[in-house]
Amino acid sequence: MGAVLAAPAGLLAHLFDAPMRLWQRIAGRGGMIAFFLAPNMAIFGLFVIVPLGLNVAYALSGGTALFLPQRSYVGAANFERLLTCGDHMDPATCRDDLFWIAVWNTVRFVGLQVVVLVGVAMVTALILNGKIRARGFWRAVFFFPVLLSPVVVGLIWKWIFQRQGLLNWVMVELGMDPVNWLTDRTWAFLFSVGISVWAHAGFYALILLAGLQAIPRDIYEAAEMDRTSPGRAFRRITLPLLWPNLLVVIVLALIRAVQVFDEVYVLTGGGPGTSTMYLTQYIYETGFASSLRNPGVAAAASLLMGGVLVVLTIAQLGLTRWRDRQ
């Protein structure tokens, strides 16, 4: 493969060399630095930095028009609309009830999903780190769903949960009545949590596994010499040493969970009703899909979500630094 790549790579280097030397001669080393940075920074600026600024402009302007010049400044009206509630716990009393339904759905989702996800990942990591045969194979097994696209995850499970699907067959075989899983509010919510755990647990298990493998073996051997019981070894050695990694994993899982959308959207479309509609779906539908399109409100909502994410990310970066120092 090296040889196959080398020929065209060599040719490219040859073709580029003369103009590059010329440019280096004209612009000096500073010019070369600019040249290396330019493509990435141009794309980055146009598609990351500029939109970031525009986001604020959208959030502060009203109307259904998408182009900024056609929009009028409305101050904090979009935020007011989102945040005004009789009782924040009860979306029905809010001016934008859908937003608060999405907020509380997301809060419930995050609360349950992160706990289950990190729990499953932790147990998996511990077991994969144990004395098992074919560790590589098992690691691959648990990692497999991580690579699947959210659409595939959603479709696979939709096919299983459908009225005449595999799950209902199992129900019948077990002597129970078939259930229409995805039209039941509680089941739909639980399955939205379930499939996202299914899809992502392997990823976090891998990070935790790396953390576990970094713990020197001789510590456990020393503990064994001291007649430490396995449970005590876990509480007093594994947990404290793994704690930095665990914290990073928890925050990372939080950041991802807040943005939940793809696989759940494919599985339930946010339904039944609005019971699995989460924040990103609210933003997507308010901004693009619904007939009552309102880019300003969508931008305001994304800024609010962005605020939460920035706090979480700063926490994560801080924690990562702290972990790497440990």
Partner: peptide
């Protein structure tokens, strides 16, 4: 700037990104 934008997922920038594109 690069580290800072690590924090901003695409899902936060949907509306303005759409208008830029």
């Amino acid at each position: 700037v690069i580290v800072a934008t690590l924090m901003i997922p695409l899902s936060v920038n949907l509306v303005p990104l759409y208008s830029v594109v």
